[in-house]
Design a protein around this nucleic acid. Structure first.
Length: 321
DNA sequence: TATAAAATAT
DNA sequence: TATATTTTAT
């Protein structure tokens, strides 16, 4: 049966992942000989494939913010250029790249955004501030700035939506309207479209005169769930590099999965194609940590609960602490 | 080269 | 913290 296959696949997901050794050398080969020389980085003499390199691949895979209580899963090798060069050999000298540690650009995948929206939805506009959202998302590696930036964009998006819905709003109350829909909106639209936007968001933020909490706020435990595994930003990055264009993941539970229209690009034809081909031929299709997948699936599936509703939304466990 | 998204600064 | 600006990736 299909379920068996999926179970099988799910059990062997790990075997399909590249071993740490596979990953570490990869970061090494990302440095071109010329570049290595330029930075006094000793280059491995025993052959260096380095077939395909792109400027943007030079990023560090994972910044080690290491939350105090959020130990990163061992299955994820935190290899960075620094350690890579060090492992390469004794170089003599120095630790030059340590100072140039810049966080790689965070890519907001639909999944990550989903979590973001859920957090905002449950916090309510009132408490939906970067800090709180970040904590609720409990995504390792995710910074407050990341959330703030995304939140900004998200608000803009909501505003846009409002404007479209209530175009004829007289009086200065709204003010959301106005801006014509730019081409950028379309792009952001599809990104944000991956996550359901709580209707009360569009309706009206904090209802004036109604200081009470949102009806959607049965609980507001502003605590950082520690049990549920954390999705690391690094994971997102990995996916980003290896299969960003594939966009979605299979549906482990067969419940339909949580893939959204991320692939539904209007014209992905050739542009997207050649990039896909150039990605990673041997790479399987799923690098997502199983637990993470389970979490997301669990959230969505549980929320829908075709056979019976049990929790409205279980992104977060019963808050404690 | 232009556009879009994220990071950073204010 | 929110917004504006700048930088970076696509």
């Amino acid at each position: 049966m299909r379920e068996e296959e999926e179970t099988e696949w799910f059990a062997r997901w790990e075997e399909q992942l590249p071993s740490p050794e596979e990953l570490t050398p990869l970061s090494q080969t990302l440095i071109t000989p010329a570049l290595a020389l330029a930075f006094n980085i000793p280059f491995p003499a025993d052959g260096n494939p380095s077939p395909i390199l792109s400027p943007h691949h030079l990023h560090r895979p994972l910044p080690p913010p290491a939350s105090p209580h959020l130990p990163p899963p061992p299955d994820f090798e935190t290899s960075d250029l620094n350690s890579a060069s060090a492992a390469s050999g004794s170089g003599g000298g120095g630790d030059e790249p340590a100072r140039t540690l810049k966080r790689p650009r965070l890519v907001w995948t639909p999944q990550l955004h989903k979590r973001f929206v859920d957090a905002v939805a449950h916090l309510g506009i009132k408490n939906a501030v970067p800090k709180t959202i970040m904590q609720l998302m409990s995504v390792d590696g995710l910074t407050r700035e990341n959330v703030a930036s995304h939140l900004q964009k998200y608000r803009l998006y909501l505003k846009r939506m409002q404007g479209l819905s209530t175009s004829g709003v007289a009086g200065g109350g709204g003010g959301a309207g106005g801006g014509p829909i730019s081409a950028s909106d379309a792009a952001t639209d599809q990104l944000f479209a991956s996550a359901p936007v709580p209707h009360h968001f569009l309706s009206r933020g904090p209802v004036a005169g109604l200081g009470g909490p949102d009806p959607f706020l049965p609980y507001m435990p502003v605590t950082v769930p520690q049990h549920h595994q954390q999705i690391t930003a690094a994971m997102q990055q990995q996916q980003h590099y290896h299969q960003r264009h594939l966009g979605h993941f299979g549906s482990p539970t067969g419940g339909g999965g949580f893939d959204h229209g991320f692939l539904n690009r209007p014209a992905v034809s050739q542009s997207g194609m050649h990039q896909m081909l150039g990605a990673a031929p041997g790479m399987g299709l799923m690098q997502l940590t199983p637990s993470a997948a389970v979490s997301f699936v669990d959230d969505l599936e549980t929320a829908r609960g075709g056979s019976g509703e049990r929790k409205v939304l279980t992104l977060f466990p019963t808050g404690e602490d």
